[in-house]
Amino acid sequence: MNTSAQVADSCFELLHMQMVDYFIAQAEKEEGVGKDPLRLEKKVHSKLQNLGFDVGHRLAERYTKDLQRFTGQLNIIKFICKEFWQAVFRKPVDKLQTNYRGIYVLHDNKFSWISKISGTPEQCKPYLAFACGVIKGALSNLGVKASVMVEISPQAACEFRIVDISQ
């Protein structure tokens, strides 16, 4: 495939929303509506994250095929913040923080996948599970076993917290 092949971003955005809707509906079908909202939410989150993991894993494989091997974990994270973020989320990360001991916090002041969703941060939550999976999958492909969590503030500002869990 020609790597410059391009599609409209709205195609992806709308597909992504349909996916989230599908998983919520599917979970409600399996669990029963309104029974245990927390359980339901967890189920939706983990399914979307698993799906994202596969996608991120493959994307990282493609995007790094012409690059030299990374030296050190920080360089892997920097690649995720710049090139990978740009390719997948259409802009680089705004700020990276780390404690130099396996915890990284990536700040995106306007996360593109939820920038068009109107709703409280709480309502936006399911729309970030897939993204967390994508990041986790990409990291895994590059040799970093990590957990990825996200905090949402108003105006689609997101804080992704990556924790190296290999130790």
């Binding site: 195609c11 996916m19 897939f130």
Partner: peptide, 24 residues
């Protein structure tokens, strides 16, 4: 006329979704 992204993201996401549907 519209903002563009690399096709891979759409391609792979769609593929993963179809797989999920086949599983469900």
């Amino acid at each position: 006329m519209s903002d563009k992204i690399n096709a891979e993201l759409l391609t792979m996401t769609y593929g993963a979704m179809v797989q999920q549907l086949l599983k469900d």
